[in-house]
Write a protein that binds this DNA or RNA. Sequence first.
DNA 1: GCGTTAATAT
DNA 2: AATATTAACG
Length: 377
Amino acid sequence: MGIYNTQSDFTEKMLKCQEYVEALEEERRKIRVFERELPLCLELVSQAIERCRQQMSGTIMDCFNGQSDQHSEQTSNDGPVLEEFIPIKRTSSTNNDDGDGQEQQKRQLSHNSKIICTKDKSSLFSTKPDWLTSTQLSIKAPDPRIEEDFLSNKPVAMETNRNGYGAFHPFRKTSSSQTPNMGVERPLTCPAMVPKAATSCSADTDGGGGSKGEDKGLYNKKERRCWSPELHRRFLHALQQLGGAHVATPKQIKELMKVDGLTNDEIKSHLQKYRLHTRRVSPTIHHNDPHPSQLVVVGRIWMPPLEYATSSPASDNTNNAKGVFTPIASLPPSITASLYKTKLCNQQPHLDGKGSQSHSNSPSTSSMHTTTVSTAF
DNA sequence: GCGTTAATAT
DNA sequence: AATATTAACG
């Protein structure tokens, strides 16, 4: 519980908190520039900083007095602060596996995935889904026990963030793990690797030969393919190579994506949706229409979501940051974890257990739709 | 094969 | 309500 095993443990945590505060301050400095446009943002960050500090001092008190301060401890050891700033409910996930800190994020996420994948309660969260971003992004397994989709099995780890909260979605930014080499296309699907669940969950969509028939007498139906961020990223990448959604054809896309098991129909369907969304979204680019809501705002620039989302994979890996806390104000794992209001299957990077990633960078990344920051700029 | 549309499932 | 799948049509 609130007790730290060792002094070093404690100091380490405090250090992280401190770093986090510093990151927040850095962030605040940046935001200040946009004080007019982002008053609330500024305020929030300020509050966060303050709160974080309070929490830290509270923690110290804890250590010394054994008693906690006003906000006490729902946050348990590793998850200091910010609960208040995170309009997100903690899911039940915390119950079962609360464990030690670093792994927490990962675990929590994966745990959430399970929950979600089992498709229990979509009702757990009432997030407004963003197109893709907040909906099922990977294939859902009908069977509760199935926790991974084919993408999560693949070697290329990836992380997904979602917070349901609208404004900023590092949708595909999740990159970090993607490694620079897009070129190397590892098979996204590793049916072989897919555990038991395989049959239902993955890939084949029957494409493999329709043989599905056997084991799953129960499931004649093709599994619903959820477009994971990674998958979507590939999709976008393919589109990019082909010159855009309007010229790309399913077949070509399929080839470029190199995702095994993905069918033309699926791509076609996805492409269809994509076109629909982008159609609605991009044309508004030029000029001031009263509906600013359809563009992604990057910095001060309005961008068509497509381009932004598609932009250079290489640059994604901006977080060399070893640390959890980049100057870019990434949240500590514990916090981050609670941010992920994961509503669906998240893939996590199996990178390394230590809370390593912190991407978090992209201000807003959008999928094809409204992640768009409609802000009041 | 592709693009649409519509119905249906999730 | 938003997505995904599927079928049908041009």
